[in-house]
Design a binder for these strands. Sequence first.
RNA 1: GCGCCUGUAGCUCAGCUGGAUAGAGCAACUGCCUUCUAAGCAGUGGGUCAGGAGUUCGAAUCUCUUCAGGCGCGCCA
Length: 580
Amino acid sequence: MINIVDKEIKSFLSSINGIDESVLSIINEKYSTTISDDLKNGHLTSNVCMVAASILNLNPKDLAKELEQKLKKLNKFQEIKVAGPGFVNISLNRKDFVSIVDEINNNKEKFGESNLGNGNKIQIEFVSANPTGPLHVGHGRGAAYGDALARILTKTGSIVEKEYYINDAGRQIDILTASVITKLIQKDLGNFSAQNTYKGKYIEEIGIAFSKEKVVTYKEPKLIINNLPGDAEEEIDQLISNLKEMDKKIWNEVKDFSLKNILNLIKQDLENFNVNFDNWFQESSLGDLQDPNSQISSLINKLKEDDKAYEKDGALWLNTDVSGDDKHRVLIRDDGRATYFASDVAYHKNKVDRKFDTLINIWGADHHGYIKRIEASIEALGSNKEKLVVKLVQFANLFKDGKKVKMSTRSGEFFTLKDLIKDIGADAARFYYLSKQADQHLDFDIDLAKSDSKENIFYYIQYAHARIISLEKKFNENNQGKKIGSITTENIAYDKYDKLIHEISKYPNIVKKSAQTLQPHLIIFYLRDLSQLFHSYYNDNHVLSESEENMKSIIFCLSAVRQTIANGLTLLGISPMQKM
RNA sequence: GCGCCUGUAGCUCAGCUGGAUAGAGCAACUGCCUUCUAAGCAGUGGGUCAGGAGUUCGAAUCUCUUCAGGCGCGCCA
């Protein structure tokens, strides 16, 4: 029906005196005809007259009255009204209004799909936590957000690939390896423990697992920790180089084992969180500068050839002016080693070469200062920085027993994602992660997520779904073999569930908007509103004591509500509950 | 100092590509369980949308500015 209205509006606009093409297209761009927020404003509403009036310097109400007359002549609507500052509100004939219920029950889980993305190839890279320990609650937010985005974008017609970038090449991994080895031979080292090693229990567990396969012994272990510098950073670097020197074989074996072990932990956590990646990209696969055929070498060569990189003070720099970065960035240090940034540029070159239309990077908000230099590198690679969309995810503060849970990765005192899932379940965790805009601080209240009050929106929505399932079940038991059929337009006081029908008809737009703005939380708020309307209806109307005809119609309608809630939850990666 | 984000009811937050009397939950107060799940429903009170200025027929929404809070500003990763 919206299409019919819009077609009429377009012909109305072009009939306005003295209007030209360019003005027309501006108006078309800006106005919208939508399902009204509230039924009191009709079923459909358009702000076209106010938009047109402001551009053409006309009176919006007069314009609206003209449009009203034109729409009335069509004879397709129950009522047209001009309201407020110049809205045109349209009430549909009942048959048209309730047709959405048939549509939903026919399309089922496909309801809400669209071709908004038009087959756009999108890559979403997210989580990408350093493989130096289990995922913590901060990573969980990025995981929930990225995965929900992937689902939403897929549902709206994009082709999405989910990728995890594994930082398996840098100093972090050396520190991990050193942590495992020193823990493993702690006794031989006289209970020594370097300041900057990882201290979590998982370090010990990896060591024990390794020692079951191989015995780690050094001829003169004390030499490993002989004369270590006092500074924490220098200490760990010296320790790493000592260990490598003493026994390169053991070092490499422990390193590979630890990395593999931790990646398994991470994959397991993500699996339990219902997050799956299409691709795991290893930083190490980019190679190193010593290998002239490696990806990182060819990147550097390309940047040099294209005059995007230059040498200064013995280092190689990338000119990042195009993106408005406040200074140029080093790619290769004066000692010949590549920076982390260089790897990242090589990684983004790899992404660009894979011909995605859009690259979405989901980063922790503390990385926002990094955006401009990556944008600049995309431009330097001859691509367009608009292709890259960086979404920042703010940290989540965890509250338990009314107190903020302190977290510190190094010390190993942190609340892991695994702990959270064990505590409240993957679905509730995902729900609360997504309940607020990703780029804003989130106070994650574990007690609330477990509470059984209306304040716990997760259960409030699930409860609506479960209640409808239960009604359907009871109806089917009492009316075996009878088909629910379709919604009747007669013999029932519709106004009681008109609000529900109106609300579910908004759903496809909500999904589109959440895809366009990359904001899954819109779906959560929508589901809460829909659930609220359902609970209210449920309380006021005893469905199962209606006449058989009415009951069929009502159950048919409620099935559509159930389907919509289920579709919304699924979009967020949450399983709808069958009973509670 | 520079950059990014935030400031809406006592609390937690929606609304922000300008539009209809600024919404919801919690908390406070009043009601509703012999009937489909009370993890529910109905109602009352509660707001200078941080302050100021501007653009506009119209501003919580856009611009400027002040104040307050968070984060980021390495040849670290």
